[in-house]
């Protein structure tokens, strides 16, 4: 009888330790969010989103006069959005098509090899991708540019999208594909009208998560897009991005008050992407 009581006690003990540990997991996230929100909210105004970053001179003058530091992160926001757009334009279609291919031909040697290479690419440190793109694009083009930055981001996004598309298509029951082909459908139409729509929710979630992963990338952009003090729309020129600005603010003592607000904007953007990916997954569940 005592033995049984001891077993019940052990079971309870394990149960509660799991609950406590799970709760502890949330502590770092809550702490990060809290710190960034409290510190960042202080300097956050609407102006902050629509003004480019101040120069050191402007910042010094403003603080000497006792004013708040002027300016914001609009040059970084524009750069981030433009480079995201360009890298997505290439990595989304290429990634989805490759993902479908890998899922559909999973038993061929070619697919196995390329699948393995995708894994390796995904594991490549982003700073190395930056160096590579610097050698391949920046040097031949004789200058830093948003195009080079987008290519670096694109290489980072690609394996994420390939992998999530591949998993999404693999998870679909083969009976949908068989049913479509049994109606006389061509392979192309079967993929286009049945497989891709059925996997859409998952693929879209994968794309959102890929974007949220690269939106905070700094290292590859240091070698490629470099940064820019004004709002730059010309993609052949050096361009700024929000994470690059955070790095610059950190390195410049006079601009440090802007550091937290820029971090808050970036964090909120990433959180929004993550939340929408959850919503998409639930809404397009089949």
């Amino acid at each position: 009888m005592d033995k049984l009581k001891f077993r019940i006690f052990k079971s309870h003990l394990l149960h509660y330790s799991v609950v406590v540990l799970a709760a502890l997991m949330a502590v770092p996230l809550v702490a990060i969010l809290g710190k960034v929100a409290v510190e960042g909210f202080r300097n956050l105004t609407l102006e902050f989103l629509f003004q480019p970053a101040p120069t050191t001179y402007e910042a010094v003058m403003a603080s000497a006069a006792g004013h708040a530091i002027p300016g914001g992160i609009s040059n970084g926001l524009v750069g981030t959005l433009l480079m995201l757009l360009m890298s997505s334009a290439i990595s989304i279609p290429v990634g989805i098509l490759s993902g479908v291919f890998l899922a559909e031909h999973r038993s061929t040697v070619f697919a196995k090899v390329s699948s393995y290479m995708t894994d390796i690419l995904q594991g490549t440190p982003s700073i190395i991708l930056g160096v590579i793109v610097y050698a391949w694009i920046v040097i031949p083009m004789k200058g830093y540019s948003a195009i080079a930055g987008s290519i670096a981001l694109c290489i980072m996004m690609l394996p994420l999208i390939v992998r999530s598309t591949e998993e999404a298509v693999k998870m679909l029951s083969s009976s949908y594909k068989e049913a479509a082909l049994a109606l006389g459908g061509s392979y192309f139409r079967t993929v286009w009208k049945v497989l891709l729509p059925s996997a859409f929710g998952q693929i879209f979630t994968g794309v959102l998560l890929a974007v949220s992963r690269i939106v905070g990338e700094t290292a590859p952009l240091m070698f490629t897009a470099l940064g820019c003090a004004i709002v730059q729309w010309d993609v052949t020129q050096p361009m700024s991005s929000v994470p690059l600005l955070i790095w610059q603010f950190f390195n410049n003592p006079t601009l440090q008050p802007l550091l937290w607000s820029a971090s808050l904007v970036l964090l909120v953007f990433v959180l929004l992407l993550n939340v929408s990916s959850k919503i998409v997954t639930n809404k397009w569940k089949i």
Partner: peptide
């Protein structure tokens, strides 16, 4: 030669009407 499978498998993203017409849309 049509086929009906062991487990019902209407296309999950299509409406009832589109499922009926799927043979046509899949054949272009």
């Amino acid at each position: 030669v049509g086929m009906v499978f062991q487990r019902p498998n209407p296309f999950p993203t299509m409406s009832i009407a589109d499922n009926v017409l799927a043979g046509y849309s899949l054949n272009g």
